[in-house]
Each structure stands twice: as C-alpha cells, then as structure tokens.
Design a protein around this nucleic acid. Sequence first.
DNA 1: GTCTATAAAAAGATAGAC
DNA 2: GTCTATCTTTTTATAGAC
Lengths: 187, 187
Amino acid sequence: MGRIAAKQTYIPTLLRLFRQFGYEGVTLAKISQATGLGKASLYHHFPGGKAEMAAAALAEVDLWLETSILPILSSKVKPIEAFELMCQEVSLFFNKGENDCLWAVLLLEQSSKNLFDSQINRAFSRWIEAIANVLITAGANEIAAIQRGEDAVITIQGALILCHGLKDFTPFQRVIKRLPQQLCQDI
Amino acid sequence: MGRIAAKQTYIPTLLRLFRQFGYEGVTLAKISQATGLGKASLYHHFPGGKAEMAAAALAEVDLWLETSILPILSSKVKPIEAFELMCQEVSLFFNKGENDCLWAVLLLEQSSKNLFDSQINRAFSRWIEAIANVLITAGANEIAAIQRGEDAVITIQGALILCHGLKDFTPFQRVIKRLPQQLCQDI
DNA sequence: GTCTATAAAAAGATAGAC
DNA sequence: GTCTATCTTTTTATAGAC
C-alpha cells in the first residue's frame, strides 16, 4: 500500500478523535490505541506529528464540503430541492446531530497558533456563498441571500451545540427539517 | 483578604482563559502568567487544581445566567421588552460576539470524563424554560414556546461559532437584533 | 511499514521555607 | 498567602532493530 493510500485508512479515525476531543484533547496515545498503530508508525505516516494528523482530518471535512455539498448547490434543480438535498447530506454527515463539527471544535479551542483558522474561514465562506448563489439565481437580493447563507450555518452549528448540551438530538432534526423552507421563504 | 474573596479576584481571568483555550488548552503555566500567581499559590486557592479552576470559571457563567438573564425573563414586562433586555445582556456578556461561550467550549471538548456536562445541561434547560415561560404566559402553545427557547439558544451559539470562523462579528449583532421580534412572531 | 526502547520536553501537583 | 525547588506523570518525538 502506498503512503497516500495508507494514510487514507486512518483518516476516518483521526477525524472522529479530533472532533470528539479537540486538538489539545487528543494525545498520541489515544491515536495509537484507536488506530492500532504504534506511535513510531504514526510518525512514519505523518512526519509532521499531531499537527499533520489534525490537518488530515480537517482536509477530510473540506473534501466532504467540496464533493457532497457544493455540487448540490451548483446544480440546476430548484432551490428548495437543492436545500433539501443539502440538509440530507448534513444530517448524514453529523449523524442526525450526534457528531461534533470539527470546524467548531478547532475554532473554539483557539489552540496557540490558530493553525487552521484560515482554512476554516474559507470553508465557511464558500458554503455561505454557495447558498447565497442559489438564492440570487432564483431572483433574491444579494445581501439578503448572503444573510440566509449565514443563517443556515448558524442554525446548523448552533443546533449541534445545543443538542450536545441537552443530550437530546431532536432539536437538530427539527431545525434541519425546517431549514429548506426557511431559506426559500419569500424569495 | 479571605480565601473566598481572594478566589473571586482571579475568576475573571480564569473565565477568559478557559473560554479562549478550552480545558485541555489551558495550562497551569498560562494561568500562572495570566494571574501573576505562582503555581503553588494557585493550589492554595484551588486545592482541586485545574479542574477546580475550570469549575470556578463555569460557576461564574452560571451566576451570570442566574443574576443577569433569568430575572429579566421572570419580570412582568411585555415579552418583547424582556427579550430585548435579554439580548442586550447577551451582547454585553459576549462582547458583541467576540467572546467564546464557555459552555460550548467545554461541551465540544468532551474532555475525558465529561466533568461539567450535567451543569451545562442544566444551564441550557433553565434558559430555554425561562424563555418558554415568557411566551406561555403571553398565551403561546407550550411546545411551540419551548421550541422558540431552543431556537434562541441555537441562534446565539451558532452565531458565535460563525463569527469566529469568519473573523467578522456583524452576523452576531444582526441576529441578536432580530431575535426579540423573532421570538414574539405570531404569538 | 511496524515495532521496542528511549529521549526530551511539558504539564500537573506538592513540600517546605519565608 | 506567596515563593523556590522538586517530583511524577504525561506527552511529543526519535533512534534503530526487524
């Protein structure tokens, strides 16, 4: 197995660990146990150490956005249908609200050097812009469209936080179900 | 200065550190530097170590909820006025969106033992219930009222995340301004 | 490509003087 | 109540055998 393919094998585990415990909360011991690899082997695949492992997890989320979300929003279907497909993917990715969002985890930690901030900034911006473009194409005012894109991200991120606080994931499912209509309201 | 009074002196600093870096991201070295106290002195005030220091910071947020938010929602003013006062306090506490929320930070970290989960759960529940009670008193349906309370928390938490991602705090101010009307809509 | 062993640094915590 | 010094454990990271 080539090095790139080998790395791919461990990335879902890395993503799970970093979004669950945060950057500082993940230790090489935890990673070693979760992957079944010794520490030295981890450094073979990720010479940059923990920072490179977290970067790989973050890249996986970027890839999800690029391949599972943005294409839907660039397709020619009606806005309401695009948003329904988007919400379906979101619900799947976050396991109906039970998964944390790696973006939020890394942002809130503000770990020493803000290693990942610009990458996360770009991801948020691209998502918001893609939602706004759907609405603009449908005739919406540009400023209102961008605000709705922001509202969508706010709703998703806020619902994930609330649900983890309440240990009740029904609010996430409720707001996700409402979101497509909300985004198209009065457009 | 008595021990309790002395502790009080350092709590704002502790709150700032823990909400900025998270539980795992805060080190005793950082606390020592930020407070100007040596490590041993910190243990004099907080024999329970880092966990007790984080608990003190969290208690400060609880106190804010109890003294600055819940009384407003128990007062006899009109719902729209109560929510406007609430949002004013929220904006102040989070410095117009620039401060992180300690609840969110600690929740997302899921640090080993979930030390603070039940406390945060109770805080969210109390806040939601207080908002719902305002609306129920004004004649709203109970289930709808609770959902609006959830929506308020979702909006606040989500906006804080988004703003930190975008490094732009205007969305927080926008949704906070809109929130009172939104909560009273069609009630 | 994985391992054992080990180093080097950082972090949490304590003892005891003042 | 604060300090210096020290201890213990954890964590990151590397060397080198297989």
